[in-house]
Simulated assay, not measured.
Amino acid sequence: MNATNKTHEIVVLGAGYTGMLATVRLARRTRKLNVRITLVNPSERFTERLRMHQIAAGQELANHHIPDLLDGTNVVFHRAAATAIDVTARTVTLDDGTQLHYDTLIYGLGSTTDTSRVPGADEDAWTLNDPRQARRFSHRLTEINAAAGTVTVVGGGLTGIEAATEIAESHPDLTVTLVSTEELGHMMGDKARAHLNRALDRLGIVRKIGVQVAKVLPDAVRLTTGEMIASDLTLWTAGVKVSPLAAHAGIAVDDRGLIITDTTLRSVSHPEIVPIGDAAAVRMPFGVLHGTCQSGMPTAAYAADSVTRRLRGKTVKPFRFGYIHQPVSLGRKDAVIQFTKADDTPRRWYLKGRAAVFYKEQVSGSPVPVFKMSKHMTMQVQFANGGRATRALA
C-alpha cells in the first residue's frame, strides 16, 4: 500500500458496541497510514443494547451521538443503512443511493430479536431492538401499572431475566410472568441459580418453565399446553436473527446466517471481509461463540489490530477467546455473577447482591468511556481466562 501511495478504504458496517470499538481503535492504530475509514449506521444515536431493558422499565439513559464519539478521529460517518454488498466490485450500496468502495470491510451488523417464528409475535409483542420502541413500551407500562395489569416476558435467557426483574422492581403493582423453554439460569452453578430464583420470588415474578408460546394475542399469550396467560403487554426476548445481507451477497454463512470465519476472523470465502460480534461464526476449541458483549468486544478489538497489522505487512496470530463470567442484573439493587471456565461452564465461585451489582457495573457498564479512551490509547480488552488481551500483535 505504501509503495503505490494508494489510499486503503475501510468501511465499517454497524455502529453498535463492536462496530464503534473497531472503528475508533482502527482510527488510532492506522493514523500514520494512508487509510480512510467510513462508518455506516442508520442512526446518529449510539444505542446501548445491554441497557435497553432499563429504558423499557422507564429509566433515563444518557443520549450519545455517534459523530460526537468520533470527534477527532478523522473517521467519516455516513448515516444510512446498507442494502447490498457486491463482493466482486467490493462495493456497498446504501439506502440513500450512495455506493461505497472498500478494500477492507468490517461487518458489524448485529442481531435483532426474532419474532417471526410464533404467530402474533410480530403484531402483538414488543421487543428491545430500538430505544424508541423501548420508550413507548415504558409509557404503556406506566399506564398498565396504574391499573394493576399484567406483563409477560417471553424468553428465559439473560435478557429476559434482566427485563422481567427490572419491570417487576420498578412497577410493583404489575403481575409479571416469565415464560421460558429451559430452566432459568441453567448455565449457572446451583448456588448462583438459587440466588437468581430467590430474587424472582422476592419480586413476585410468576414463572412458566419448560413450555413454549403457541401464539401471542393482543391481551394474552397462549402456551403450547393450551394454557392462556392474561397479558396486557408482551415483551419478546426469545431468539435472535441476523441481517440477510451477507447471505444475499454470496458470502459463506452458517445455518443461522452468521459469516463463517478463519482463525484470524476473516471470512473464509472473502478474506477482505472481517465479521465481528453477533455477525461472526467464530469457532473455538470448545465450540462456536454465542453472541454476547463479552465475546463481541474482543472480536472488534482483535479485528482492528489484525487489519492494522496486515496493512503494515506483519503476521497475525489466531484469535483466542475464553469466557470468564455470566453477569445478570436482578433489578437495580441486586445481581448475580457466575464465574466460568473458558467454555462458559460454571466454576465454583459466584457473587450475589450488592457486591455483584458493583462488579457488573464495572465490567459491563456503558462502553462509551472505552470508546473515548480508545481514541487516545490502545485499550486492552480482556478476552480469555488468565487476563490475556485480545490483540493481534506478537
Rank of each mutant, 00 (worst) to 15 (best):
T4P: 02
A15V: 01
G16R: 00
G19P: 05
G19S: 12
R29L: 13
L39C: 10
N41W: 04
E44C: 07
T47D: 05
T47C: 11
E48V: 04
R51Q: 13
Q59N: 10
L69R: 01
G72S: 12
A81M: 03
A81I: 00
T93S: 15
T93L: 07
L94E: 10
H101L: 03
T104P: 02
D114F: 01
S116W: 01
D122A: 14
N129P: 00
N129M: 00
R132W: 03
I144K: 15
I144R: 14
V154C: 03
G157T: 11
A163S: 15
A168L: 11
A168R: 09
S170D: 07
H171K: 11
G185Y: 01
G189L: 06
G189Q: 06
R193S: 12
R193C: 07
A194R: 06
L203P: 09
K208Y: 00
P218Q: 11
I229G: 08
D232L: 07
L235F: 08
S243P: 02
H248E: 14
G250H: 07
I251P: 05
D255C: 06
I259P: 03
T264K: 15
P271S: 15
P275H: 13
P285N: 12
H290W: 10
S295T: 11
P298M: 10
A301M: 04
A303P: 01
R310C: 04
P318Q: 13
F321I: 08
Q326K: 08
D334G: 11
A335G: 11
Q338H: 11
L351E: 07
R354I: 10
A355R: 11
V363L: 06
P367K: 07
P369E: 09
Q380R: 14
V381L: 12
G387K: 09
T390C: 13
A394F: 05
